[in-house]
Amino acid sequence: MSIQHFRVALIPFFAAFCLPVFAHPETLVKVKDAEDQLGARVGYIELDLNSGKILESFRPEERFPMMSTFKVLLCGAVLSRVDAGQEQLGRRIHYSQNDLVKYSPVTEKHLTDGMTVRELCSAAITMSDNTAANLLLTTIGGPKELTAFLHNMGDHVTRLDRWEPELNEAIPNDERDTTMPAAMATTLRKLLTGELLTLASRQQLIDWMEADKVAGPLLRSALPAGWFIADKSGASERGSRGIIAALGPDGKPSRIVVIYTTGSQATMDERNRQIAEIGASLIKHW
């Protein structure tokens, strides 16, 4: 058993032996400061991975655009179909130039040979490839079927209504393609630790998130040596930015963190910096 498999397999085991986890309101002070700095709403939640207890939250039940963070949920739905014998990670999917949409750094290189379902999930999560996400959405029946999958998990909040890139429109008060921090954190925890997916599929999902290559300026920039993080970021119109993550010290995840912001006029660099500073406060007061 690899170190990674050891880590995921023991998450339920550690729940019975973990020390009490204490919240630190200092992080919420930073979240509120980020709102002031960005001139935008910020949603935040910090969840204990083992118990599911909410440690801190700010606007946990307000809607925010999901942006590309939905791609983790999408690959969770794909893995659920794999577990049920309805899909194979090794199945190759062929597509054409007409299928390519904006920001497809991986799929645009494989027009001649296509990509496997496994490769598409990797591209969608680690590189946020939009065509990969659309191709995967097609395999499960489209955005409405992803919403149905989430409903069956008990998440009646999170919804996907459109495809890439239209889902990134982020119109104020538009509930399409949105979630709430509390709903996203709970759903992510179920995917990573619950019985919905097999152990192998849970491991695969967290491996893809751990290999994320496009979230460096966010929480990863504040991470001390030896800490673990598996994450997925997102960005969209109207100053929207977000990240969902499982992270913790000693090389294993122990908390879920979800951060969303929307409605800012700030630059992408400034949005990144504010999220990184929230992460730094979280780690300092861990």
Results as ranks from 00 to 15, higher is better:
residue 240 S to V: 04
residue 50 N to K: 13
residue 242 G to Q: 01
residue 216 G to K: 08
residue 283 I to V: 15
residue 212 D to R: 05
residue 85 G to D: 11
residue 240 S to I: 10
residue 169 E to V: 08
residue 238 R to H: 15
residue 41 R to Y: 06
residue 246 A to P: 01
residue 197 L to Q: 03
residue 254 S to Y: 07
residue 243 I to F: 05
residue 39 G to R: 12
residue 282 L to S: 03
residue 262 T to E: 10
residue 57 S to T: 09
residue 230 A to V: 03
residue 218 L to E: 01
residue 95 Y to V: 07
residue 262 T to I: 07
residue 170 A to G: 11
residue 144 K to R: 15
residue 119 E to A: 08
residue 133 A to P: 10
residue 242 G to P: 00
residue 74 L to P: 02
residue 178 T to M: 01
residue 269 D to R: 10
residue 236 S to E: 07
residue 86 Q to P: 04
residue 191 L to V: 07
residue 144 K to I: 10
residue 137 L to S: 01
residue 9 A to N: 12
residue 133 A to T: 08
residue 82 V to I: 10
residue 228 F to N: 02
residue 178 T to K: 01
residue 11 I to E: 05
residue 73 L to P: 11
residue 24 H to P: 13
residue 3 I to G: 09
residue 38 L to R: 04
residue 166 E to L: 09
residue 84 A to C: 09
residue 140 I to N: 00
residue 200 A to L: 09
residue 48 D to A: 06
residue 41 R to V: 07
residue 146 L to I: 06
residue 107 T to L: 07
residue 75 C to R: 02
residue 212 D to Y: 05
residue 63 R to V: 05
residue 7 R to Q: 14
residue 221 S to A: 15
residue 206 I to L: 15
residue 204 Q to V: 11
residue 237 E to Q: 08
residue 169 E to T: 11
residue 176 R to Q: 09
residue 78 V to E: 00
residue 129 D to H: 00
residue 245 A to K: 03
residue 194 G to R: 07
residue 98 N to G: 13
residue 111 L to V: 14
residue 156 H to R: 10
residue 68 S to I: 03
residue 68 S to L: 00
residue 107 T to R: 02
residue 286 W to L: 03
residue 108 E to A: 12
residue 4 Q to G: 15
residue 219 L to R: 01
residue 146 L to C: 04
residue 238 R to L: 11
residue 153 M to R: 06
residue 119 E to V: 00
residue 92 R to G: 05
residue 269 D to A: 13
residue 206 I to E: 07
residue 55 L to T: 06
residue 171 I to A: 14
residue 243 I to E: 02
residue 136 L to E: 00
residue 136 L to S: 00
residue 225 A to Q: 13
residue 283 I to M: 08
residue 145 E to Q: 14
residue 246 A to L: 14
residue 67 M to V: 06
residue 196 L to H: 15
residue 140 I to L: 13
residue 61 E to Q: 14
residue 90 G to Q: 13
residue 18 C to F: 06
residue 126 T to L: 07
residue 248 G to A: 02
residue 189 R to E: 07
residue 216 G to W: 08
residue 69 T to D: 00
residue 182 A to N: 10
residue 178 T to R: 01
residue 91 R to G: 03
residue 178 T to I: 01
residue 18 C to A: 14
residue 204 Q to P: 13
residue 198 T to H: 10
residue 214 V to C: 09
residue 149 F to A: 07
residue 40 A to E: 09
residue 30 K to S: 07
residue 222 A to W: 07
residue 172 P to D: 14
residue 175 E to C: 10
residue 56 E to Q: 08
residue 92 R to V: 14
residue 208 W to C: 03
residue 170 A to H: 14
residue 41 R to A: 08
